[in-house]
């Protein structure tokens, strides 16, 4: 089988790409996509560690399943917020949403 570190490598790369999207894109939906990529990287890690560590238990798969549910919830709420913001400000550019500025 492919050694574990290669999976970790792919996951790390995916995570960093997602991070970059989150940090640099202006569109909120693109940021959300970046978050999804990061979550998937985590899922790859979880499943990989499970497969190479303790495949006879259910821990890794169960956690992954929970992460997926949380990610789905996050996507739903996040997109709802984006739509609400768009409706009120006619913009989804995060830099323009700076009500919290000191």
């Amino acid at each position: 089988m492919v050694p574990l570190w290669m999976f970790l490598l792919v996951a790390a790369a995916l995570f960093c790409i997602g991070t970059f999207a989150v940090l640099s894109r202006r569109n909120a939906i693109a940021i959300l996509m970046g978050v999804e990529l990061m979550l998937n990287a985590v899922n790859i890690n979880l499943v990989a560690f499970w497969r190479y560590g303790t495949p006879e238990t259910m821990m890794g798969q169960a956690f992954t399943a929970f992460v997926m549910v949380v990610a789905a919830a996050e996507a739903a709420v996040g997109l709802a917020i984006i739509i609400a913001v768009y409706r009120s400000r006619k913009s989804v550019v995060v830099e323009e949403v700076d009500l919290m500025r000191g």
Binding site: V94, M100, G102
Partner: peptide, 17 residues
């Protein structure tokens, strides 16, 4: 001190990272 509070989440995130 309040000037560091830009209201831009991405900037905060970058600093965190």
């Amino acid at each position: 001190f309040r000037r560091i509070q830009t209201g831009r989440v991405q900037q905060y995130l970058l600093l965190v990272l």
